[in-house]
Design a protein around this nucleic acid. Structure first.
Ligand code: FES
Ligand code: FES
Lengths: 143, 143
DNA sequence: ATTAAAATATGACAAAAGTCATATTTAAGA
DNA sequence: TCTTAAATATGACTTTTGTCATATTTTAAT
């Protein structure tokens, strides 16, 4: 469903959403451990996210990663778009040129309703909304 | 969502369902072209499917691949299980040990209803049912 | 029996995804 | 200004996935 890299990136961003702020930055090494991701690999992913504008960073001593007010308005889809490239979810399940309701492949009707609902949620819910859910103890961050 | 291999395998099986029979077998080369899959690669996949009991084959002249009455009762999930291994769909989206409704990850509620419906369809609809849909012109086989 | 046509088995090779290491740049604090 | 702590850039390496080629086995037809 998601690539490994995307999973890592999502976990990292959600952790930052809950645990960091403009004034309290988090270093890779302090992020890698709790979300259970290889540190060196995570560093690379964080850099991509940073370049993509999804997260913020500050170099040097007392530096680290954090989410700004703007960062927190992005969606999960934004994250996977940066990490895995776009069109991970808009293409036909059987790799037709374009997923097309007029000439649907055998999986289209099977998948389309549930799938579009899923994709919609990826596009709708902001990081901010997720972090609220986490803080309310409704959902949990995996280690 | 699906691996490339699984997509190829699904397309091949559906094509066989519609175009082959016990008495009218189809050779790899005549299968690879219409479903637009590299022939040598497809041959390997068909062999896996055959070993897995999902499709039938006959060696030698006038040989080829086809679906028996039993073959046609399998599901799409059976195909991807053979090709990609099991547990492609039962694991947590963020790679928690086990997808667990009691201690759900942030994606669980977002995804769970639509996802389980999707998985259910993969497990329910038989190849036979798909081929009927295709023959009725309700859905189409991609090239 | 011999031949030829098909699947099967095996393995080499290529491309992509995932992982790790290291040198460079930036900035805080003494 | 110097030192040190952090992100950043770059690239080597490994594993998995996808691709291709070729030799072997089976079987129908002559
Ligand atoms: S046409 Fe294949 S998923 Fe829509
Ligand atoms: S706990 Fe992660 S998808 Fe269910």
């Amino acid at each position: 469903m998601f690539s490994n890299s995307s999973k890592y990136a999502i976990k990292a961003v959600l952790f930052l959403a809950v645990n960091s702020s403009e004034s309290h930055r988090i270093m890779v090494k302090d992020l890698a451990a709790p979300i259970n991701v290889p540190q060196a690999y995570l560093a690379k992913l964080l850099q991509e996210l940073s370049r993509g504008g999804i997260i913020s960073s500050k170099k040097g001593p007392k530096g680290g990663f954090f989410l700004s007010k703007e960062n927190v308005q992005y969606t999960l889809m934004d994250i996977v778009n940066v990490i895995d490239g776009n069109d991970k979810f808009n293409s036909c399940l059987l790799s037709l040129e374009k997923c097309n309701a007029d000439k649907p492949c055998p999986l289209h009707d099977l998948a389309s309703p549930s799938r579009s609902k899923f994709i919609q949620s990826l596009n709708q819910n902001t990081i901010d909304e997720f972090s609220i859910q986490i803080e309310q103890g409704k959902v949990f961050l995996p280690l």
